[in-house]
Design a protein around this nucleic acid. Structure first.
Lengths: 340, 340
DNA sequence: ATTGGCACTCGTAACAGGTGAGTGCCAGAA
DNA sequence: TTCTGGCACTCACCTGTTACGAGTGCCAAT
């Protein structure tokens, strides 16, 4: 009973603080929310909440603000699912509908997330390692120059140019292409690399050299983790709204946004699209970002999480709304990938 | 004689202000620079410079700061070429040396520019319209599904998937591929589109449909200006160093960085790699960015400017150093593209 | 043409007093 | 027990005043 009201008070504090960004006092609280008790009672509850570490006061004789622990309790127990508005839903469908290729999907998702949440959005490109080989193409550029094109199930295209020690006629190129595709088509990248390694052995030793060169380049392209780490960032202009805690939080944020490795770590392991990860303040794996929170989730075709997407913002953010949006976008992107 | 000293004073003011970011007074000036005259004399010169609009004082009884007009005169007449340090030269060569593909070249250039100038760096991808067709590849994905790969001389690869009304056997695909390549190989994109339009006419009307579909998709890919507008941005963390004039300048800056169209306009027309464009303050085509300057130049293989690259920073910046760096990077990138 | 001197301006730092939002605690009511 | 009204207390913040000093403009002398 009393515990219930204390939680209601905490919720009210979080909501008010998020809305106004100002410490909230007992009087303002009973005015804005129908708590049905007097300010004095609220004060007692607040003192208790402070003892337990859920709220704190920036200085004596100021209102209270939630601590990280307070936000944590809020998202864990006080957040009921907030349905998206019709306008938001429409924005999501119409904007993602028009995407033409993978790059475009990622880019539109970033924009969408940034606009709807008014935070900095991050979308990781679908990971290479879990995708499969759709096709390998060899193109003769010059007599001793070959362009390799590796097309993956996610729509990603990797390309490499190799120099051969001696010319290779079109017929041979075609034969090698067929062999490569037979060996790898439909395989997961990790398996494909193994199969690829076996291909040169099928050739007599005097023909083996060019095949080995091509295979080596392809394997290199497959294991190239540079692409694994690709992310797209958007909505950085929203950083300007951080306003007050500027120096303390915007600089490390800008630095983090430059380092894609850092962003990937922020997003964390790809979780199932139905499960959201929320990291609050000090729970974020970087000390300099201890005034920011991350809301992220996995996405990908068919419930399998190929990559992660989410937003980063000040700990003081609208968690229910943000969480609903992130989840909705992830679901919809997954659906698009499923169809494409 | 007197005019010469006045210019020396202006130069000293610019240099000091850029270094300290604080209004510079007559006394400090004679101390730090060997002007060989008394503060009073400098004061007279300063009054004169102020009359002519080259410097201004933020308030009575403060030192002077350069106006946009002052900076303009400075870069036009007072800047002698500042040679790069050995370390900088080495940084440029070593960092760009290792690039593997076009994306990588662009990315490394951005990093390099951002690190060396400590400003926000922008690099435009080589423009489609001036590049030529290297190869067109058709790949059968399913009986009625065709993947088109368009490979350009710059190393860029565009891809499209088309659905055909009815299956097309491999032999026909090969014939179409040959026809397409014969028509377009080596042509500039704009010309290639025209040639492409003629291809379907060579086929009897009952075979024309699939060809027309493929051609239409290719032409769409060629004229797709989305790719024309691609730029890469780096060094946003340097915005944090803007420090004081925060609200006024960092917010529009962040907004501009989100809008690639705006960035392209900022970079301006691609000029020859040997010619630098410097836009100062109000000379920049956006009013909100009137406290920032742009240093940009064109780059591309063989003196022909395919695209533009440069930096954006506060009007108060080290012009000689920045200009030298931008020019050096542009030259080196051009060289790399020439070889690749 | 240059310089030293001098009065003047004005932004900024430092200090003081007043105000009020907000608190904690306590004694009495429900 | 639980809640409430009352009351003294704290302390950030605003305002006004003062003192300081960097920097200027002007002028008479060199």
């Amino acid at each position: 009973m009393v515990e219930d009201r204390k939680l209601a008070v905490l919720r009210a504090i979080v909501e008010d603080y998020v809305a106004t960004q100002e410490p909230v006092g007992s009087k303002a609280l009973v005015e804005r929310h129908r708590l049905g008790v007097s300010p004095a009672t609220v004060r007692n509850d607040m003192a208790s909440l402070e003892d337990e570490g859920f709220i704190t006061q920036p200085h004596t004789s100021a209102g209270r603000i939630p601590t990280d622990k307070g936000y944590r309790l809020f998202v864990d127990r006080l957040t009921q699912v907030k349905p998206l508005s019709v306008a938001e839903k429409r924005a999501i469908t119409t904007l993602l509908q028009g995407a033409v290729d993978l790059d475009d999907v990622v880019q539109r998702s970033v924009r969408l997330l940034a606009q709807l949440t008014r935070q900095v959005a991050i979308v990781q490109y679908p990971t290479l390692s879990r995708s499969t080989v759709r096709h390998i193409e060899l193109v003769t550029l010059a007599s001793t120059r070959l362009l390799l094109v590796l097309i993956l199930s996610t729509g990603r295209v990797e390309q490499r140019v190799v120099e051969l020690p001696e010319p290779l006629d079109d017929e041979n190129v075609a034969r090698i292409r067929t062999a490569l595709n037979r060996a790898t088509s439909g395989e997961r990248l990790s398996d494909a690399a193994d199969r690829l390694a076996e291909v040169p052995e099928q050739y007599p030793s005097d023909e083996r050299v060019p095949v080995a060169i091509v295979v080596a380049a392809l394997m290199e392209a497959m294991s190239d983790h540079r692409s694994d780490e690709r992310v797209m960032v958007g909505g950085t202009a929203n950083l300007a709204r951080f306003g007050d805690g500027f120096d303390a939080s915007i600089k490390p944020m800008l630095e983090a946004l430059e380092e894609h490795v850092v962003l990937l770590k922020l997003l964390g392991e790809a979780s199932s699209p139905s499960k959201l990860t929320v990291r609050i303040g000090h729970e974020v794996p970087y000390q300099e970002l201890s005034t920011t929170s991350v809301v992220a989730t996995g996405y990908g075709p068919g419930e399998e999480a190929l990559a992660t997407l989410g937003i980063v913002g000040p700990t003081r953010m609208d968690y229910p709304g943000t969480m609903a949006t992130v989840r909705a976008v992830a679901r919809y992107v997954s659906k698009i990938l499923d169809e494409g």
